[in-house]
C-alpha cells in the first residue's frame, strides 16, 4: 500500500508543482521586467527627498508626475500631443502609400526593380536628417517640410520590406494558383497578398518607429508646437521635468500606436506558425 501511495505522490507532485510554478511565473514575468526601473525610480526619489541630491537637473518621479498633471491641466499636453500625432499620421500615411506602390511594383516586376532600386538604395544611404535644410528651402518651415521628412523616414523600411516579401513569396504556392487557373487579380488577392502580409506588417511597424524618430528631429529643429517643441522649450527654460514628461509622452504614444498596428493585423495573421512563449 505504501508503495502505491508513494508512486502516486511521486507521479502527482512534480506536475502540480510545475503548474503552480507556471502560473506564478506567468504572473510575475511582466513584474520582473518592471523591477529594475521601479527600484531605480524609488531610490532616486528617496535620495532627493533625503536631500542627498538636489534633483534640479534630474527631477525625481514625483516632480515629473506633477509636471505631467500640470501640463495636462493647462491643456498643453493635449494640444501638443495632437499636433505631433497629426504630423506622424500625415507623414506615415504619405510614406506608407508611396512605399507600398513603389515596393509592390519593384517586387513584382524585375524591370521596375532594375530601373528604380539602385537609385532608391543610393538615396537610402543618405542620413535622412541631412535632407532637412533642403526640405526647408523647398517646402518652407511649416508643416510640409516636417511631414515630408517623416514620410522619407517611413518610406525606406516599408519599401524594402514589401519588395523583399514579394520577391520571396513561395513559388510553389504561386504554382498552385496557376494550376487552379487564377486570374492575375485573383493571384494577387488570394496568394500574393496573404503571403506578403506578415513581412509587410513588420515593415509597417519599423516604419512607424522611424516616423516617431523623425517627428522629434523635425520638431526640435524648428517648431512652435508639438511634443518635440516641449523638449526644446524645457531645455531653453531650464525645466528638465517638462523634458522628461515629453519623453514619457513619446514613449507612451510610440508603444500605443505600434500596438494598434499589431492589434489590427492580428486577425489576419492567426495562421502564422509562431513559437508560443508559454
Amino acid at each position: 500500500m505504501s508503495v502505491v501511495g508513494m508512486t502516486i505522490v511521486a507521479d502527482g507532485s512534480p506536475t502540480r508543482e510545475r503548474s503552480i510554478g507556471n502560473r506564478w511565473l506567468r504572473l510575475t514575468r511582466p513584474v520582473l521586467g518592471l523591477l529594475l526601473p521601479v527600484l531605480l525610480a524609488a531610490a532616486w526619489e528617496f535620495i532627493v527627498r533625503m536631500g542627498w541630491a538636489s534633483g534640479r537637473l534630474a527631477p525625481p518621479p514625483s516632480v515629473i508626475f506633477a509636471e505631467f498633471v500640470e501640463l495636462a491641466r493647462t491643456g498643453d499636453l493635449q494640444s501638443n500631443t495632437l499636433v505631433t500625432l497629426a504630423r506622424v499620421a500625415a507623414g506615415f500615411a504619405l510614406g506608407v502609400t508611396t512605399a507600398t506602390i513603389i515596393g509592390a511594383a519593384a517586387g513584382y516586376s524585375p524591370m521596375v526593380r532594375r530601373l528604380l532600386d539602385p537609385s532608391l538604395q543610393a538615396l537610402r544611404a543618405i542620413p535622412s536628417i541631412a535632407w532637412v535644410p533642403l526640405f526647408v528651402l523647398w517646402l518652407g518651415i511649416f508643416e510640409a517640410s516636417k511631414v515630408t521628412l517623416i514620410a522619407v523616414g517611413v518610406f525606406f523600411p516599408v519599401y524594402l520590406g514589401l519588395m523583399g516579401a514579394i520577391q520571396s513569396v513561395d513559388r510553389k504556392l504561386v504554382e498552385v494558383g496557376r494550376a487552379f487557373r487564377l486570374s492575375d487579380v485573383a493571384m494577387v488577392w488570394r496568394i500574393l497578398l496573404p503571403a506578403v502580409l506578415p513581412a509587410y506588417v513588420i515593415s509597417l511597424r519599423s516604419g512607424l518607429g522611424l516616423g516617431w524618430m523623425f517627428v522629434v528631429a523635425a520638431e526640435i529643429m524648428g517648431a512652435s508646437q508639438g511634443l518635440g517643441y516641449l523638449l526644446v522649450d524645457g531645455q531653453q527654460l531650464g525645466k528638465p521635468a517638462e523634458i522628461v514628461a515629453a519623453i514619457v509622452a513619446f514613449a507612451i504614444l510610440g508603444k500605443a500606436t505600434d500596438w494598434l498596428i499589431a492589434l489590427a493585423a492580428a486577425p489576419f495573421l492567426r495562421w502564422e506558425d509562431v513559437v508560443r512563449q508559454d
Binding site: K172, L173, E175, V176, A179, F180, L182, A186, R190, I191, P194, A195, L197, F268, W271, E272, D273
Partner: peptide, 24 residues
C-alpha cells in the same frame, strides 16, 4: 488536376478553404 510532392496547402486558409480553393 495536379498533386505535387509536397502538399502545398495555403497556410493562411483553414483546411476546408484549402479544399475548396479550386471552387472559387
Amino acid at each position: 488536376g495536379i498533386i505535387f510532392q509536397e502538399p502545398r496547402l495555403l497556410p493562411w486558409l483553414k483546411v476546408a478553404d484549402n479544399v475548396g480553393f479550386g471552387l472559387g
